[in-house]
Simulated assay, not measured.
Amino acid sequence: MEQKKTRILIADDDAEIRSVLTLLLSSEGYEVIAACDGQEAVEKADDTIDLYILDVSMPNVSGFAAAAEIRKTCYAPVLFLTAYSGESDRTMGFSVGADDYIAKPFSNTDLLLRVKAHLRRSLEYSKALYAAKAENQGHTDSPDSIVYKDLVLVPDSQSVQKDGTAIALTWTEYRILELLLTHRRKIFSLENIYQSVWDEDAVGDSTIMVHIKNLRKKLGDNSRNPQYIKTAWGKGYYAD
């Protein structure tokens, strides 16, 4: 039986960039679905897509707006292509669920490395998340589960449940939560968290702060009196 190809959706209003990306990714064995703008990307998005590459500056519906809409139902990694890599742009992108940024003009080698890394990290997580939502069977019996209050994290499947209900986290959000819960009471600075999750130097404090805000919202955590992710003012974040 022929193995199902990994599906990557690319969206860019520049036909030449779409052509280059399609050729590059297809040569690596990926199935490429191309969209010429953000609206078409939203229309073509579904749970069969394994990764999204979206240009930020597209007419009508921007990459940011498209990602925000896609994130309502899909949890595959989202990579942004952008000519702007400032902190404010990254903050906006991460706030709508982005996993990474690739600056234009991009290196083909760098893009492929990032694509492969995100696919490797997320494929099992995405499949496990859909399975957990469908089954909704409550706490797992896995001996490697991380139990914290009413949260259960399962490292093998990278899934998260709260009171037996699956929580839809992106891969990046899961990694931050796992980091804090596996090192209780240790305060992680913003730079520590960034290096642990991305394996590179931090690009700005707001990146992690946006992810923490998103995590708290999804977990139902009150930022003024948090139960899961606590703030050590001027130092960082921790779980007690």
Score class of each variant (00 low, 15 high):
S142F: 11
L180E: 03
D89I: 15
T73S: 14
S19M: 11
A83F: 14
L9T: 02
G93C: 04
L111T: 01
S223K: 14
S85V: 14
I167L: 08
G164H: 09
L81T: 04
G234W: 03
L81V: 01
W233Q: 12
D46C: 09
T172E: 01
S159F: 13
S223N: 10
L151W: 06
G97L: 09
G234F: 03
Q227R: 15
D14V: 10
M58Q: 04
E31C: 11
T22F: 07
D46P: 10
L179V: 04
L151Q: 07
A41C: 05
T82P: 00
G164V: 09
K44V: 05
Y30V: 02
S95P: 04
S157C: 09
Y238R: 05
V78R: 02
E87W: 11
S95Y: 12
K217L: 09
I167Q: 06
A132N: 03
F80E: 01
F64G: 03
T231Q: 12
E16Y: 15
Y237C: 06
I229T: 07
K218E: 04
L179F: 04
I17H: 03
I17D: 01
A34Q: 10
S19F: 06
D50I: 04
A166S: 06
E124Q: 09
D110G: 11
Y30K: 04
K72F: 01
R120I: 00
D141L: 14
V56A: 04
R7C: 10
Q195N: 12
A15K: 15
W171H: 12
T172I: 11
G97H: 06
I53S: 00
M209A: 15
I49T: 09
P143A: 12
G97S: 08
L123A: 04
K149L: 13
N136Y: 07
H183K: 13
V152D: 01
Y84R: 13
M1V: 08
Q39R: 15
V154L: 07
I167N: 04
D100I: 03
D141R: 12
V32S: 02
S57I: 13
Y238G: 05
L81I: 03
M1D: 10
I8P: 00
R216Q: 12
G220F: 12
Q158W: 03
L215T: 02
E200L: 06
P226I: 03
I10R: 06
H211V: 10
K44F: 09
L181Q: 03
A15E: 15
T6V: 13
V20T: 02
K5C: 06
T170I: 02
K218S: 04
D201E: 15
Y75A: 10
D89H: 15
K133S: 03
K127A: 15
G63M: 06
G97A: 08
R224W: 08
L21I: 08
V115Q: 00
L54A: 03
N225Y: 14
Y194R: 01
D221M: 13
N225L: 12
I212C: 01
